[in-house]
Simulated scan of single mutants.
Amino acid sequence: MYYFEHEAQPEAFQSVFHSLWWAVATLTTVGYGDVYPITAGGRIFTALVLFVGLGIVAIPAGMVATALSRARTIEDDAQKPE
């Protein structure tokens, strides 16, 4: 992010570490809202990172939910009297 945004926003993205902190705050919360990408490269890079982050969370969460649902169904079927 630093390489995309430093020229346009030198006070917000002062170093690679400032950019890393922005990324951590953005990916783990909804961000602060005061710093956001304004260049086309920064916006595209942010979108790609957010989709990857969402995929890392959403796909395993869906798999776990499906497995728990199947386990619950098997458990319920085993407890029904015949």
Rank of each mutant, 00 (worst) to 15 (best):
Q14D: 10
G55D: 08
A47S: 15
I38S: 14
D34V: 11
V24F: 06
F17T: 09
H18T: 11
I59T: 06
R43F: 07
I56V: 09
G31L: 06
V57I: 12
S15F: 00
W21R: 06
A25R: 10
T39I: 08
V49P: 08
I59H: 08
F13C: 03
L20H: 00
S19I: 00
V16I: 07
A40I: 13
G31K: 03
V24K: 07
V24Y: 00
A23L: 10
S15N: 06
P60S: 12
F13K: 01
P60W: 08
I56Q: 12
S19M: 04
T28K: 07
W22V: 00
F13W: 02
S19E: 01
M63Y: 04
T46L: 09
L48G: 15
W21P: 00
V35K: 09
A61N: 11
I44A: 15
I38F: 11
V24M: 13
I59N: 07
G41S: 15
A61D: 12
A23R: 01
T29P: 03
W22Q: 01
V30R: 05
G33R: 01
A40M: 08
M63V: 14
G41A: 13
A23M: 07
A47D: 15
P60V: 00
A40Y: 02
G42C: 11
V35P: 03
V30Y: 14
G53Q: 02
T46Y: 02
L54K: 14
T46W: 04
T46F: 06
A25N: 04
I44Q: 12
A40G: 14
A40R: 13
G55W: 05
H18V: 02
V24R: 04
